[in-house]
Amino acid sequence: MSQIKNFTKGFIKDNPVFVLLLGMCPVLGVTTSAMNGLGMGLATTFVLVMSNLVVSLVKGFIPSKVRIPAFIVIIASFVTIVDLSMAAYLVDLHAQLGLFIPLIVVNCLVLGRAEAFASKNNAFSSIIDGLGMGLGFTFALTLLGGTREMLGSGKIFGFSLHAFPEGIDGMLVFVLAPGAFIALGYLIAIINKLSNKTA
């Protein structure tokens, strides 16, 4: 497989959120605005790339029986790095994302790529795979966050679009919990419809 194909598969064909349905908790939990979605996506991308790199480098030394616990320790180390750096430099975003930063550890996407890709491929392809998958995840989170923010408050990245008439702030329900499920449901339906047409 060429590296370009390896990189782009995460965006549409194997998009972790819309097609593979991996890592749904942060997808629904943090996407109240486009900015939160972008921040969460980039944090996950960092963990994904670094853990893919390390897993592909040490795959020869780890006995296959204990590989899953070993992968989890590697992932948890990078999650701790992200958690502490965000707490130091991005205080507001860290407070918004809260619990979901340490929960990157149990994001099935990260462990899934380590097991399915990085443990079988060389370091360079693993980095590309992590980057592609991570950016695909970021794209999905930002799209969902943007959709919810626009429907819920008429803004994107905090800028007002003046989409709603005076005196109406937007449909609050899309910023609250139920809106996450409904917005994601319709986004997946739209993507299903589009990909069926092209296929």
Binding site: P178, A180, I182, Y186, I188, A189, N196
Partner: peptide, 23 residues
């Protein structure tokens, strides 16, 4: 269910309505 909505999408929308009820 309409073809595009079948499976996960309709399940997610139902979950949304369930979440509304819990609100």
């Amino acid at each position: 269910v309409p073809k595009g909505m079948a499976g996960i999408p309709i399940a997610l929308v139902s979950a949304g309505i369930l979440a509304l009820a819990f609100m």
